[in-house]
Amino acid sequence: MRCTKSLFTLLAAGLLIAAPLAAQADPAEIIDERQEFMKGLGQQLGVARSYVQDGEGTAADVAEAARTIAERAGEIVALFPEGTGMHEVDIETGARPEIWEDPDDFAAKAEGLSEAATSFAELAESTEDPAEIGAGMAALGRDGCGACHRTYREELD
């Protein structure tokens, strides 16, 4: 009886420890999560594009979207745990192995996105000119997205 109880406790404890670890280590889940996350950033960019191209919304909406990107950029590094690279999983992902070869640089690039998005927010707070905001969006793409993707993201298909 005592033995069974200990065994049960041990198992329960094991499960308690193992469950979150397993959840964290499941590459499919984390890859799905980060792809949704990136799409979410894309939706914020869509706000800016709609304003520039179609005159939908306001410059203040664009600024708010840019602030959201700046804040959420801080979540990027945690979405790329080891073992979730494109050559390590049988799931379609463009995460290049270089991410884990130079994690400090990867983190710096994520920080760079935050800075570029903040600059873009400040621009959208200072002007309502669609052309200027359009150019600012291109700069965010180049300095924020592109600076990281050029090394760490596989070419799209």
């Binding site: 990136m38 960019l45 793409g141 592109g146 993201r153 799209l156």
Partner: peptide, 14 residues
């Protein structure tokens, strides 16, 4: 700009 219609961004050498 590097932005796709879904606002994904180019990767790699592109």
């Amino acid at each position: 700009t590097g932005f796709t219609p879904e606002f994904d961004y180019a990767g790699g050498a592109m």
